[in-house]
Every structure is written in C-alpha cells, then in structure tokens.
Design a binder for these strands. Structure first.
Lengths: 251, 251
DNA sequence: CGCCGATTTGAGGGTCATCAACAACTGTGG
DNA sequence: CCACAGTTGTTGATGACCCTCAAATCGGCG
C-alpha cells in the first residue's frame, strides 16, 4: 500500500527543530518543548506518491510534517476523488484518526517528506499534564476546520476561474507561512489533476481554466508545478481576503 | 442585527439536562458534570431567523444547543451564500471564534432555539483542570471537521441528485442521533433555498431535483420542511455509508 | 528509441444556471 | 371578511458552463 520506510532514526532534536524558529510559529516554554521532545518517537521518511494513512485504518501514530507536502482526500466507491486539503510543514497529520479511532480520509505525499512520529496513546498524557499543548492541538484542529470552511465556500459558490485563482492563492499563502519561499516565487508541486480533484472540476476544464490564469499573467506553469506570479491579482479575481496571519503553535 | 433576548434565566440545571440521558451521549463523571454546571452562565433564547453569531465579530461566549436548529454559513462579497453545516441539540456553536479570536462564519437559527451560554475566558480553566473535557472539546472539533470532509466530497464530486439525497440522509441521521425523532419520521425545518445554498446549486435546479426524490418516494415535502420516507434508499442513491454511530460527549 | 504520465486542444452534449411567470400559503391590516 | 404583501414552491424556456470523449504533443526515463 505504501512504501514508507520503517526507520525511525532521529535526525532533528526538537530543541533544534528547523521549523520552530520561523516567524510563523509561536514561542514555546522550555518545559513544553521538552515534553514534545519526549512525545516524539522518531522520524518517518516518506517517498513522493506514497500513502501515509489510509481511510478505514486504525493508526497508532500521528505526525507533524517536518518537510514536504501531502494532501488529504476521500474517494467515492466508483473512484471519484475529492482532495480535501493540503498538508505542509508544521501541520498535523492523522489527528482525526487518533481522536476518533479510525481514519476517515487518506493522506498521500506530494513530495518526499519527513514526518515527526507521535504515539496516539500518549495524547491522554499530554492532555493531563500540558493543558497549554492540549489547547494548541484544539486550536490546530479548529484552524483546519476554518480552511475547510473556506474550501467549501469556494467549491460551492465560486466559478471555475474564481475557484482556481482562490486555490493557488490559498496554497501559496500557506506555503509562505510555512517558510517554503526562499526568495523566489513559491513552486507548488502538484499536477493539474490534483487541482481538478480539489476544485471538483474535470481535468480538461481545469486545464483550460489554468490557461486563462496563465494568459492573464497571474501564474506560470513550470517544471511540473504551479508558480505564483501575481498573488494580489489572484486574490482580487477570487474575491478572497487572505488568511489571518497569526502565529501558530507547533507540536 | 439579531433579535436575541438578552435574558439568561436558568431553566435547566446541568444535572437535570434533558439531553444528557439520550443514548447518543456519553456518561460523564459527576466531577466533570459539576464543573460544566459552573461553566454554564445561563441560557439564551433565540428566535427563528435570528443571527446568533456574525462573521468578523469577537464573541465572548460560546454555546451548546439545548434545543432547536441552526446553520453556519459564509458569504461572498456579492451575496452568494454557502451553508457549511447545520447545528442541532448537543452541538457546540462558536468554538472556532472562541479559539481563534474572531468568527470566520455566521450562525443563524432555523427554528426557535435554546442555548447554554459559556464564557470563552473560562476555556483556559477547563483545559487546566479538566483534561477529559478538554479532550472532549477537541473531539467535537474533530467531528465537525469530519462532517465538513463529507460535505466537501459531496459538493465536489456528487451529482445534484446524489448530493441532495446525501444531504437529507445526512441531516436526518444527525437528527436521529440528537434525539429529534419522536416516533414519526424526522421533519427537517429548512427551505429549498437552504438546501440549494448547502449544495452549491441554484434554487430552481434544487427544486427540480427534490421533485425527483419525491417522485421516487424517498422523501416528502410537507409543512414547509423535508420529511424522510426511505432513509436506506437515499443512502443507496448517494453511495453514502452513514455516520459512525459512536456515543459522543456533551459539554 | 519507446513508454508512460502530464498537458493541451477540439468537438459535441448534458447538467445546471438564469430569467420569467405563476401558484400556494401565511400573516397583516382594513 | 377580504385585500394585500411577502415568502416559498413550481414550472418552462433558453443558454452558459462544464463534462466526456478523443487525439495529439511534450517531457522524463529506462
């Protein structure tokens, strides 16, 4: 099913987490940080295209993305696929499954990934002894809910052109927040099929819609991925306000 | 904006909560129950059609639905509306706003409602002293996320007929879980405009789609609301498995 | 080179939106 | 009691948006 490597060699200690210093993330108390460090069981290397979690499974783990991209999706019985959201560095993966016992969606890697591995069973200890972290986890669940609200609004009520503009603006905003933009424009490593399955459109129509965005010089399509040229133009076209850019916790 | 009554007369003590004995809800430890009781600041009566919470506002409260129906929605600047989900007895309202500081969606009552009022500021105390309740809150946030995933799948990938069948089956499943079915079939107090705005369809097409469901004897439309005739037929048509029917917490 | 996945383009058709009326029902005030 | 307005539901006509089918091109890779 997945070509995960079972290895768990620790490469990054939480105290030297490469993500935490980024401006997008909140400060942490050293006490909390040391608990997170003990909470972390190791690291998981995932290949591009590998399935991280499968709908219906009962995983004993949850993860934080250290590097790389993934997407969450659900399938209908006849194979129609709906991509629900994307995961990037700093995001939790598998929280829903940890809380509810069973995964209700699948997760697949869009690029090679490095994941911090946590054990589901220790969540209770976290809630018992670290209320601040517990609050943070609820906060992140709520953040995900908020993103889903936006996606729902987009799929339900925006035209194909608006939807596509919204999606690429949304993803690039998040990527920026996750420190994925060196100096150059963000490169989003997805195919047009992913965009189609996110927006509820066919591949063919997605392609024609993307072409319009390219013709308007809002984005470019290079090296098998999407590159944002004019973020403000995209937001205007979509009628999208952008994300609240509050600093967020990192478990 | 809203015609809420500011009154907060307590009518139901948490120890005698009319909801808690229902089979849908989990047992509670008496210690937790007494905290919830102290957490509860009063009750709020809301008229049908009134706005409970507005997008952009900073509410000091969050609520649990004691009775009645509501819906969450977002608007685009030109007035297009997307209904995100429905709230019914036992559901939290305004958690997202309490955690993130600002409401990212609005909530409107579909029927007269009775709400338990909690104070946002006391959430931290809850997290500090009642990790079990904190866990429950995260669980409920996660449950909402799961419902949004399903709705997204539906809007993105199901046809109008499948979507409509899914929606009424979904709502009636939840209503059953909230103890809203006496003996007779569930009556859902929504207009076809609400259904249209939930499914991302036009009112006219929604009407024609509903008629097909009526002709197939899957639902009936009576007294300005939807009534489920054949729940299994609806689920078949939509290709929907139904909700996991685990017992859930009630804050 | 040949294969395979991703992208592109055209043609034709179906689903669904928009526009426009009208009917049914409710509550309101005369 | 009835006239009236407002909301909700219903129906038909027309066409736009988007889907499906089909085929071609491009690129990376063994």
């Amino acid at each position: 099913m997945s070509s995960q490597h079972p290895q768990s060699a620790r490469q990054y200690s939480c105290e030297k987490c490469p993500l935490r210093p980024l401006p997008a993330f909140r400060e942490f108390e050293s006490q909390e940080l040391s608990f997170v460090s003990s909470f972390k069981k190791g690291e998981l290397v995932v290949d591009k295209g590998a399935t991280v979690l499968v709908e219906g499974s009962h995983s004993a783990h949850l993860y934080t993305v250290l590097s790389g991209w993934a997407f969450r999706y659900k399938l209908l019985s006849d194979g129609r696929r709906q991509i629900l959201n994307y995961s990037m560095p700093g995001d939790l993966i598998g929280l829903q499954g940890s809380l509810m016992g069973q995964m209700q969606h699948s997760v697949e890697a869009l690029s090679p990934m490095l994941l911090c591995v946590f054990e589901r069973d220790q969540l209770h200890e976290l809630y018992r002894n670290y209320p601040g972290l517990a609050y943070d986890i609820t906060w992140m669940a709520s953040r995900e809910e908020r993103m889903l609200d936006e996606n729902l609004l987009s799929i339900g009520r925006r035209s194909a052109l608006e939807r596509t503009a919204y999606l690429v603006a949304f993803i690039s905003s998040r990527a920026r927040g996750a420190g994925l933009d060196g100096k150059r424009p963000v490169q989003i490593p997805i195919t047009q099929q992913h965009i189609a399955d996110t927006l509820g459109l066919s591949l063919v129509h997605t392609n024609k819609t993307i072409r319009k965005l390219i013709d308007r010089k809002l984005i470019a399509w290079r090296d098998g991925g999407c590159e944002i040229i004019d973020q403000d133009g995209l937001k205007d076209l979509a009628g999208w306000e952008g994300l609240g850019e509050e600093r967020r916790p990192l478990i």
